[in-house]
Design a protein around this nucleic acid. Structure first.
Length: 481
RNA sequence: GGCCCCGUCGCCAAGUGGUAAGGCAGAGGUCUGCAAAAUCUCCAUCAGCGGUUCGAAUCCGCUCGGGGCCUCCA
């Protein structure tokens, strides 16, 4: 079984064969740093974090590049509003981005280049395109001439005539074709600028990705990723720039993740349903957010809602409860015993799911069955005396942790994670741990006196408040709703 | 108008030619003082119609319904 990926260019799943066996070059469009990241960014970055992790798990040597676009019209506009420099603004939001991604548990890419650190390469690329007659200078701007690139729109599969019908040339622009796009923009007063053969200016959007990817990954590389919305114009333009300049194929596999909706509506500022990662992490554990995102296939749209996030939390809790139960059940049991086929089978199923275009939803489905295997085994009579079953539980528990790590899940100590979750839940209910413990003690006393009516009354009243009591031979524990 | 996507159990969600994963919810059993948790069993023929095929949720066509892109956007 080998990895297959859905390639936007062909519209099909293809067998993944990197240009150089054992190595993968991957570029993912990062963010334009002018504001806090929203949950759409969270999804895109988590999705490609999983691609990165799974390729590594599959023993590829991955060179993962994710850029910061730190020079752009929106950055300039926002910086002017706030009366600070573009650089100050972009540095602030680069820091915020890093914090958000760390909170979400993302692995650091191999390289995180900034556009402003690649101005020389950008200028060289623009010169190359002009030299080949594919770009032209016009009053200090430089435009890409889309008519010189016959493959233009091959990724987005759009129609040039119809696109032109709707295209407009903005005031001040002097384009030969309305579809032409800026490679370099002449600086207006008080804008950040760099010297260039066309006068002081700055890069247009799109060119920085072509420059940085070729610098760090070479002319042709394996995977290029981003959100669906980048297919046109961003990725289309990158192809035009890179293939126009090099005359060689740019990218082998194009991967695009689906959108995030909020309560079944498109997320947008005007609808007021726009959530930043920071907003969400106020209410939800980052791992719950990650789990939620991974329970859908990366190309499908997902709907962000309290109900769905709460469902995700319930699902994730099921895993931590099973892991915790496994730890408790085998504690102190002697090592040795032959584990059964469960753990290796789980890994095989997990790989099969992930090999099929990173089907994390299906992979998690298999992991749920692993959790059930644990629960089933430890519930058996005299479980602790059956060395083989103890070994199986240990093996499955370890395997779930290992495979979970490929998805960036289950990194917490189960007991701690559950404790934190319960304390937070309790807080939301307006109770303290001491309150609950006192009632548990009281109920325990009532039970030992066989005053079951009183004991049940305590339990029912806590349940009504959202706290469930769980009796076991080892004592009574509780969990918050 | 052009291009594209989607419609699977009450809810979420896999499955793209061989007769429907998983989670939540629900019903029943086991366990329990009774419960909860856990576990076991049960619970959908895939929007509709027609076609291709030995065989379709999966391919084609039409209809209905929902959404996206075509301007910045993960």
């Amino acid at each position: 079984m080998s990895l297959r990926v859905y390639n936007t260019m062909s519209g099909k799943k293809e067998e993944f064969q990197p240009l150089v066996p054992g190595k993968v070059g991957m570029y993912v469009c990062g963010v334009t740093v002018y504001d806090y990241c929203h949950i759409g960014h969270a999804r895109a970055n988590i999705v490609f974090d999983i691609v990165y992790r799974y390729l590594q798990y599959s023993n590829y040597d991955v060179n993962y590049v994710r850029n910061y676009t730190d020079v752009d019209d929106k950055i300039i506009a926002r910086a002017n509003e706030r009366g600070i420099s573009s650089q100050e603004l972009s540095e602030e939001f680069i820091r915020a981005f890093d914090e958000d991604m760390a909170a979400l548990g993302l692995r650091k890419p191999t390289h995180e280049p900034k556009a402003t650190e690649h101005i020389a390469q950008i200028i060289r690329l623009v010169e190359q395109l002009i030299g080949k007659g594919m770009a032209y200078a016009s009053s200090g701007d430089v435009y890409y001439s889309v008519d010189t690139f016959p493959d233009y729109l091959k990724l987005s599969k759009r129609n040039m005539e119809e696109m032109q019908a709707g295209a407009r040339i903005a005031p001040g622009e002097q384009k030969r074709n309305p579809m032409d796009f800026a490679l370099w923009k002449a600086a207006k007063p008080d804008e950040p600028s760099w010297e260039s053969p066309w006068g002081p200016g700055r890069p247009g959007w799109h060119i920085e990705c072509s420059a940085m990817s070729s610098t760090l990954l070479g002319t042709t590389f394996d995977i290029h990723g981003g959100g669906r919305d980048l297919i046109f114009p961003h990725h289309e333009n990158e192809i035009a720039q890179s293939e126009g300049a090099s005359g060689k194929p740019f990218v082998k596999y194009w991967l695009h993740n689906g959108f995030v909706n909020v309560n079944q509506e498109k997320m947008s500022k005007s609808l007021g349903n726009f959530f930043t990662i920071r907003d969400i992490l106020q209410s939800y554990d980052p791992e719950v957010v990650r789990f939620f995102i991974l329970t859908a296939h990366y190309r499908s749209p997902i709907d962000f809602s309290d109900q769905n996030l709460n469902d995700a939390q319930a699902g994730l809790s099921r895993f931590y409860e099973a892991l915790q139960a496994a730890d408790t059940a085998v504690e102190g049991c002697p090592e040795g015993g032959a584990s059964g086929p469960e753990a290796p089978a789980l890994e095989a199923q997990f790989r099969a799911a992930m090999d099929d275009d990173f089907n994390t939803a299906q992979a998690i489905g298999h992991l749920f069955e692993g959790a059930r295997t644990i629960n089933r085994l430890i519930a058996e009579k005299k479980f602790r005396k059956q060395a083989d079953k103890v070994a199986s539980v240990r093996a499955v528990r370890q395997k779930i942790a290992e495979l979970g790590d490929v998805l960036g899940l289950f990194a917490s100590e189960p007991a701690n994670w559950l404790k934190q979750k319960n304390l937070k839940g309790l807080q939301a209910l307006g109770l303290t741990e001491a309150d609950v413990e006192a009632l548990i003690d009281e109920r325990l006393a009532a039970r030992s006196n066989k005053e079951f009516a009183r004991a049940d009354q305590i339990r029912d009243s806590l349940a009504a408040q959202g706290v469930e009591l769980l009796d076991s031979p080892a004592g009574t524990t509780w969990k918050a709703k």
